[in-house]
């Protein structure tokens, strides 16, 4: 039978040769290998100071977008919650009252929008389901917390700020990536 890999080695239980019994050649060989590693570049990423380079389409913590005038895009249609395979998203809808036009883009908005970050599998289906360009996954990392309750992110964490410098850039996610599918 043809073997799957060429890494197969036949073993035998023969007596050790003199050079093998003397240990020293093998010891020196091993030491030369470790000495080579002494001059190799370390694989460490010094995390808080530097972060590992991530793919452009990395799927991390979510953001709820606002439009150019600072109004929330989300209309609480609930498509993201339906699409979510992990059932991590909870939405309560409310009607926009007169005088709130500068806060919400359409008549209906999400009064509660929670994502359980421990349930979320970062698949990005919510982003795909969203018809209003409201929810996006970003390259931000969800920080560690001391209790499970803290991982349920509400609108206070998810919605981006109004000021230009508080906006979260999602232009990379909006790019139209086409997969190379071979026929």
């Amino acid at each position: 039978m043809k073997s799957l890999t060429d890494r197969k080695k036949s073993v035998s239980k023969r007596e050790l040769t003199f050079a093998e019994k003397a240990y020293l050649p093998a010891v020196l060989k091993g030491m030369s290998i470790t000495l080579k590693h002494l001059f190799k570049k370390e694989a460490t990423v010094r995390y808080p100071e530097e972060t590992r380079e991530r793919a452009e389409v990395y799927r991390g913590m979510h953001v709820l977008k606002r439009d150019e005038e600072g109004r929330e895009n989300c209309t609480a249609c609930g498509l993201c919650a339906v699409a979510c395979p992990a059932e991590a998203i909870t939405i309560d809808a409310a009607e926009r009252q007169p005088g709130e036009e500068h806060l919400y883009r359409e008549e209906k908005y999400a009064s509660k929008y929670e994502i359980n970050m421990l349930r979320c599998i970062y698949c990005g289906l919510c982003e795909e389901a969203c018809p209003k360009d409201a929810v996006y996954l970003t390259d931000r990392i969800v920080p560690t917390e001391y209790s499970r309750g803290k991982f349920i992110y509400g609108k206070d964490i998810l919605v981006e700020g109004v000021k230009p410098e508080e906006r979260i850039d999602i232009s990379q996610r909006k790019k139209d990536y086409k997969m190379d599918v071979k026929d």
Partner: peptide, 13 residues
């Protein structure tokens, strides 16, 4: 430190 260098790590810093 030597252990770290021999294992391609940084060591205590």
């Amino acid at each position: 430190k030597v252990a770290a260098w021999l294992q391609d790590r940084v060591g205590p810093n």
